[in-house]
Design a protein around this nucleic acid. Sequence first.
DNA 1: TGTGATGTTGAATG
DNA 2: GCATTCAACATCAC
Length: 263
Amino acid sequence: MPELPEVNTVRKGFDQAVLDLKIIEVEVYDDKILRNASGVEFESTLTGQTFTGSYRQGKYFFGDLDDGSAVLFHLGMTGDIIYYHDDADRPPHERFSIKFSSGLKLGYDDPRKFSDIRILENRQAYLEQIGLGPDALEIDAKSFREIFDGRKTTIKALLMNQKLIAGIGNLYADEICFQARLHPGSRAGALSDRHTDSLYLKMREILQTACDRDAYYKVYPDDWFWKWRTDKIEFLEEKGRICKSKIAGRTTYYIEDYQKLIV
DNA sequence: TGTGATGTTGAATG
DNA sequence: GCATTCAACATCAC
């Protein structure tokens, strides 16, 4: 479930585990997810180098290499990074592995292969090229408000549009709408400043809380919307009927009447 | 066994 | 500009 908090957690783990360790071996088992290099090129480019730092914007995570280039790790829907020493602990759908001087291995796991892994000479230029919007935890209130002005699209589609705000996916979009008590199908441009500010504050609070808890949903607050997926749905039911529909092309859950529809 | 749904993005279409 | 559909791919629940 890699949205901003999950990717943030992957980055934290990466920094802790492999920064400043020399890469001594790279093995590619499936080059489908390598979008601009062959397996052999990937192996030879990385081997001998060191990750000196990392960077994240939205769901895009980069490992910076000592020659000034960078590796993009975009996790898609099911990408994940696992660290291990013993090959017996290899993840089940490992597409490549990177072995470091300490003997530690970074295993890249991705059952559905929607990941986008690529080598970039300049990550900043790449971000500009794809037009990725400002990170959801970095954007200021004024810019956030301006995004909504005059837009006919739904607030859910807007929140998930990575070119406008980077980092929010289907699940957190629903969580933000729920906590801001706004119907996900509300028209962006129809929102008052008070509503937009409420969305902004909830977005920050939710993403920050999730990051602080390492995106480990089991320790998320009990009054979050996500709890509908667990056993604690009584508190939701007393607010109203739990509805399921398709908004912005994605399965969407919300509480009827509790979340105000503004059109 | 078959069918539909699933956290991602991007392209094509209307 | 925006909504919709599809494609990439594998797994899981029903």
